[in-house]
């Protein structure tokens, strides 16, 4: 039986559950795997990541979040705008942010146990801080969630071959520490050979495109798709009540 963790996306867990007679195989994201969420711009990849991270927090699963597009303050605001308020979890030291979205002027925030600033132009530093975060967060409990939102920005600022290696090491570190990783990536932002390499490194591939969510690859299930909508509460699959 494949152990899955709830995604936080209404309808997604039902969509990915198998028709097990005993009702044991609950749907969701397979635990201790790496999932790629990809698709064109503006289809809700980040919103998927927010819901995934937030739902884990509500289940006492800490989260290691590498943000490359939104600085931490903006990330908090963006999540709050769809009802996902992080303050409580930040206070409880459940939400660990590696902020690579800083402008050249740098961060106004001091680095701390729960916040580390970095730069998309320094892949080694990203890896150092993410690895440190994974080690720290794995001490808090048996499972945690880890998000990269998004890989696109890191790829745009570096040699793609280098970033593919960073991704490989990142996935390894998160899995070793017992975490479940989710990575967002904008389709077409790298050349096709880089995209093939990225896809070959993850366990699950989910595509969001034109109102349709497609499971292209996932442990224990075949390819399937379903329509979805982006509402004020985030992504909602059409099978949800």
């Amino acid at each position: 039986m494949i152990v899955r963790i709830a995604s936080g996306i209404p309808g997604f867990d039902d969509f990915t559950s198998s028709d097990d007679d005993l009702g044991l195989d609950l749907g969701g994201i397979p635990e201790n795997t790496a999932t790629l969420i990809y698709g064109p711009q503006g289809v809700g990849k980040s919103i998927f990541a927010y819901a995934f991270a937030y739902h884990g927090l509500t289940q006492d699963e800490p989260c290691l979040y590498l943000t490359t597009d939104l600085e931490m303050g903006d990330l908090y605001q963006k999540m709050a705008s769809i009802g996902l308020k992080l303050d409580e979890y930040s206070e409880n030291e459940m939400f660990y942010v590696v902020d690579a979205a800083l402008s050249d002027s740098g961060s106004e925030m001091e680095d701390s146990d729960l916040y580390q600033s970095t730069s998309v132009k320094n892949p080694t530093d990203i890896l150092v801080k993410v690895s440190r975060g994974a080690r720290m967060i794995s001490n808090k409990g048996p499972r945690f969630r880890s998000v990269i939102d998004s890989l696109t920005t890191v790829l745009e600022s570096n040699n793609p071959v280098l970033i593919v290696r960073v991704l490989k090491t990142y996935i390894l570190r998160v899995k070793e520490a017992g975490g479940t990783a989710l990575i967002t990536y904008t389709e077409g932002s790298s050349n096709s050979s880089t995209e093939i390499l990225i896809k070959s490194m993850v366990d699950n591939i989910i595509k969001l495109d034109h109102g349709k969510i497609t499971i292209e690859a996932m442990k224990g299930m075949g390819r399937k798709d379903i329509p979805y909508q982006i509402t004020e509460k985030g992504i909602v699959l059409d099978n949800s009540e």
Binding site: D111, T124, D125, L127, V128, S131, L162, T169
Partner: peptide, 28 residues
């Protein structure tokens, strides 16, 4: 700007050595 900040850690050499190993592993 980034790696210089490692000198603020308690054991800067250990942190930098760890980072060097990582940079080698990814070819940075």
């Amino acid at each position: 700007a980034i790696y210089g900040s490692y000198q603020k850690f308690d054991n800067p050499l250990a942190h930098i050595k760890e980072a060097i190993e990582m940079s080698r592993s990814i070819g940075d």
